[in-house]
Write a protein that binds this DNA or RNA. Sequence first.
DNA 1: CTCGCCCGTGAGCGGATGTTCACACCAGAG
DNA 2: CTCTGGTGTGAACATCCGCTCACGGGCGAG
Lengths: 339, 339
Amino acid sequence: MSIDLSPEEFELLARLAHRYYVDGRTQEEAAREFGLSRPKVQRLLERARWAGVVDIHIAVPPWLHLDLEDEFRERFGLADVIVTPARPDPQSQREEVARGAAHHLERRLRDGDVVAVSHGRDAGEVPRFFRPGRRLACTFVSAMGGSPRVDEPTNPNEICRALAERSGGRAVSLYAPAHVESAEMRDRLLEQEAVAETLRIAAQANVALVGIGGTDDGCTMVRSGCFSPDEVARLRRLGAVGDVLGNYVDALGRPVASPGSARLIGLGMDDLRRIATVVAVVSEPEKPPSILGVLRSGVIDVLILDEGNARTVLDLAVAAGDAEPATRASQRRPAVAVT
Amino acid sequence: MSIDLSPEEFELLARLAHRYYVDGRTQEEAAREFGLSRPKVQRLLERARWAGVVDIHIAVPPWLHLDLEDEFRERFGLADVIVTPARPDPQSQREEVARGAAHHLERRLRDGDVVAVSHGRDAGEVPRFFRPGRRLACTFVSAMGGSPRVDEPTNPNEICRALAERSGGRAVSLYAPAHVESAEMRDRLLEQEAVAETLRIAAQANVALVGIGGTDDGCTMVRSGCFSPDEVARLRRLGAVGDVLGNYVDALGRPVASPGSARLIGLGMDDLRRIATVVAVVSEPEKPPSILGVLRSGVIDVLILDEGNARTVLDLAVAAGDAEPATRASQRRPAVAVT
DNA sequence: CTCGCCCGTGAGCGGATGTTCACACCAGAG
DNA sequence: CTCTGGTGTGAACATCCGCTCACGGGCGAG
């Protein structure tokens, strides 16, 4: 800092910065005092920050990882990222992530918003921590069908109901299974007005709350019976690394279809892309490849994950040689220390 | 710092400050992201600064003493203060102070300005360091008469000539001695058009460059022969601690007149008060009481002095129990614009 | 239960700030 | 000497920000 400045310039910058930041003069007053034009003062102050003569230091609580969040935001073009503190056991990890998602929704949701909701254990924990301060006139709608084979709280209908209950909003259920036995059956079901109506509402949502699934044999799609272990194995061989609402993608984020894909009832990738804010909440240590793949697909707008996964995903991205995007911040921003 | 904040609030303030200062979002963007109103964001950022979550640090070159300057400015209501680095020997001390004054004038002067100039060794050194980058259409006019008993460069006419030469401006000399042998003679001289004209111009100056004289036997007024040692001794007995342009004041800044006062040719205190910017330049270690007295008279707008004198004068003021003025700076903390 | 005080909130405004643009100055080449 | 590219400057404009003020909701007293 304050390198390659002549003593005269250093003195000027320091005096100017002191007058502006410490004494609280306006740039115009300072300009008059120093015999400069106001734009010149502005440029000098900018240069002072640039050279480190002015150092803006932000005390960040030790459990936050704003730098990680920034890197995610910039690297993957996300609107927002929340990295939650690391926890020793998987369950409290999940709760931490769910709490982050709940808080994010509390801040994000506005009256009139329509939230499409996926299944999953991570999403399923969100309602427990969801406590908006006021009544929210929002609609929570299932973005995919249900399954009798998993715990109630991880079914979309149930998550919607809980979210609506806690916010005073409305829940719209999808009265259909997440998967059926044939594509034909699916098409028949989609013709049912009760089903079509719900999916129409979901497709027009402006917010989505989704989990990110893996491709191991214990993933939610298998646990819920949507896909058999064999089917997931086939998807793996096709390169799939993870899914959102049963829509699988490979490591580069490209869609991977399997015969089973045609038997799913729920929003597709294109539907998701039309939703303004897709919030993904994810925990579990096997997830990094899934997260990276889904991120690369570009459907996610807001990501909520724990510190460990965040670091691993970034490491994977770096190792894969993802070009670091020209960050707007590094161009526009002077040296700013963050603790 | 960051004390007595709940973890939630600490987190919010840190996130907000990070988005604003580091990521460079506008308050409005941040407000949208955090689900707050813009004024609320503004208040939170203010609170963050207040609580020390945001800390703006300015790297000040070690040879500057901006804190001292601030204290002078606030305590004595000065428009500007320059504290120059301490120097071991008196001559380089004087040069340092003169350089500061010269730079200040370079910044301060505008075309059309009229500068009234006093005598003195400190003022006399100013022209050597005065190098405005461009031509200045200014008038430099003697604010008091001359004396054949001191070196040429410390006479007002000569200082004016040198300043004008270096800036491409105009010098207006006062063709009269600084003191005459009787009040009657002074009045007769003041009737001379050449003298009256110059003093009229000086009285209408909008800037003045003055030294601050002491009351010891070696002070400029004695060295120049304006006052005899006896007369200065009498002034001392009357409480005088220093002078500007031969106008003596006591420790509380009140005028002190002596018989000799009526034999001086130059601007009086009231003339000085009418000048918008009176710049005083002073060095020498015996000067602190003189400086304090003159400051208390309220004629000075800009003070240029060395670090040693600055500290001593402040110590004197504190010891004398001068009430510390309520500082505006501590109330007005600006939001920091980061580009 | 009702009233009134008080804190916190968001609209609105005027000043402050960030940015763009045209120009003037300078240096170097033709 | 003239031209031209480059750099730095201040005018003008379009936000952005800080402040004031009227409002509403919560809480304690009556």
